[in-house]
Simulated scan of single mutants.
Amino acid sequence: MKEISVQELKEKIDGGEDFQLIDVREDFEYEMSNLNGELIPLGGILIETDKISKDKPVVVMCRSGKRSGVAVMQLEAQGFTNLYNLQGGITAWAQEIDPSIQVY
């Protein structure tokens, strides 16, 4: 599984790179704090694969990197090869990039 750090993600955002950000947390978690990714909760990831790009990098995130890692493995089993798991999830983003983000 390929991974990306929060610093690398910030560079992609700041550089205006073309990529997709998928957040696999639940609605209430996303409402509390998010990085403007597309919300597809883990439980529905396999039935919503049509929403996930196959022709550009896709960064998958959650709270800590565990659920997103599961999502990446499930999607790679479906043939996706362009996925990156965000190491440490939104918790790492809050610690290393933006301490104003609310974490739980």
Rank of each mutant, 00 (worst) to 15 (best):
K54R: 15
M32Y: 10
I13T: 08
F80C: 06
S68N: 07
E96A: 05
I47Y: 11
D23H: 06
D14K: 14
Q95D: 09
E3P: 06
L75S: 00
V72M: 05
V58R: 00
L83F: 10
K66V: 11
W93E: 00
A77I: 06
V24A: 02
K51H: 10
G43T: 07
G65R: 03
E76I: 10
Q20L: 09
I13S: 07
M1T: 13
R67H: 09
T91M: 12
G43R: 09
G44K: 10
F28R: 04
D27H: 13
S64D: 07
L42A: 04
K51W: 09
S100G: 05
I52W: 01
Q20W: 08
Q20G: 09
I90F: 03
E48Y: 07
P57I: 03
Q20C: 09
D23Y: 04
E11G: 15
A71P: 03
C62W: 00
F80S: 03
I52G: 03
G65I: 00
T49Q: 09
D14C: 11
D50M: 05
V6A: 08
G37L: 05
I90N: 00
T81W: 12
E26V: 00
E3M: 11
T81L: 13
E96Q: 13
V60S: 01
A94S: 11
I45V: 11
I45C: 03
F28Q: 04
Q74V: 01
K2Q: 14
K51P: 10
D14N: 15
E76M: 14
K10T: 06
V70F: 06
V58H: 03
S5K: 09
W93Q: 07
E76W: 15
N36I: 14
D18I: 14
D23E: 05
E11Y: 15
Q87I: 04
I4Q: 05
G37A: 12
S100A: 08
E96I: 02
K56A: 08
L46N: 07
G79A: 09
S5I: 12
A92K: 07
V60I: 08
R67E: 04
S100E: 04
Y84P: 00
N82R: 13
G79Q: 11
D55K: 14
S64E: 09
L39A: 08
G16N: 15
E11A: 15
Q74N: 12
E76C: 13
Y84H: 06
V6M: 10
I45H: 00
E31T: 12
P99S: 13
F19M: 09
T49W: 04
E17S: 12
V103R: 01
K51L: 12
F19H: 07
D98W: 06
M61G: 03
V6I: 14
A71Q: 02
E48C: 01
A71F: 05
L83D: 01
Q20K: 06
D18Q: 15
Y30S: 09
M32G: 10
E17H: 15
